[in-house]
Amino acid sequence: MKARVTVSLKPGVLDPQGRAIAHALQGLGFASVRDARVGKVIELEVAPGTTEAEVAEMARRLLANIVIESFRVELEPAPGAP
C-alpha cells in the first residue's frame, strides 16, 4: 500500500521560493495570484497494515523538520484491497 506525506512550510515562515513563483506567475499575467507556498510530497510504499501513526512518526523523525514544517499523512490502500 501507499502512504503519502505532504510537507508544507508552517504559516509565517518566509518562503523565498514561493515568493519567486508567485512573482513569475504574476509576470505571466495571472493577476489572480496573491501568494505561493512550496512544499513537497513524499510517496512511500509501505507494508499492508502500516498505521497512520507509524507514518507520522517517520515524518517527525526525518521527512519533516518540525521547526519550520508541518506535515499531513494519507494512507492509500492497494487497489483491490478490502
Binding site: 515562515v13 518566509l14 523565498p16 521560493q17 519567486a20 523538520n65 521547526v67 519550520i68
Partner: peptide, 11 residues
Amino acid sequence: LPGALMRNAGL
C-alpha cells in the same frame, strides 16, 4: 542547535 537554515532570501 536550535532553529533551521533555509534557502537564502535572494535565492
